[in-house]
Amino acid sequence: MKVELTVNGAPVAWEIAPGDRLLDSLRAHGCASVKRGCETGDCGCCTILLDGEPAASCVVATAAARGRNVVTLEGLRGDPLLARLQEAFLAEGAVQCGYCTPALLLVAWTLLQSGGPVDEATARHALSGSLCRCTGYVKPLRALLAVAGRPGAQLRGGRGENGLRGRPAAAPRGEERP
């Protein structure tokens, strides 16, 4: 079957099999920045922008993307905000293996692009759907906050969900310092 959609600004018509996932279709068509980490929607490595919103492309059927607008990191080449994020990621040491990096950049870009106020909590929240096994998130968060106008921000930590994702934390963080 054929499916028509817009990928990185260009209309494409792909020959696909029913059941093909957007992740595989994108990778097969040269979008190597979209990575496969779990195929169950849990790791975030395959994040793309689907009509402007971050989405896990491994759980989107390619057929369901018909007529929609898909942007991957390749499509943001030359974007000044992305360039600043990329520079900040390199300067802050936010890249280790780099496998999660395209996804982290995309969600960071989306957060900053939205223009709302960005602090540690919003930044953590934005990254919370993207796993990184290498960095402990400190340096990616610092890079994001630096581009958000908070260079050298002191990170106070997340709520501590202990893997109980989606559950409300038992209490707000203790703010007192001796």
Binding site: T40, D42, R124, L131, V138, L141, L155, G157, G158, E161
Partner: peptide
């Protein structure tokens, strides 16, 4: 055998780290 049931730390889980 999946990341929903085998949890690894997210950005929300990480405490303040001093290195």
């Amino acid at each position: 055998p999946n990341f929903l049931d085998y949890k690894i730390a997210t950005a929300m889980d990480m405490p303040e780290l001093v290195t």
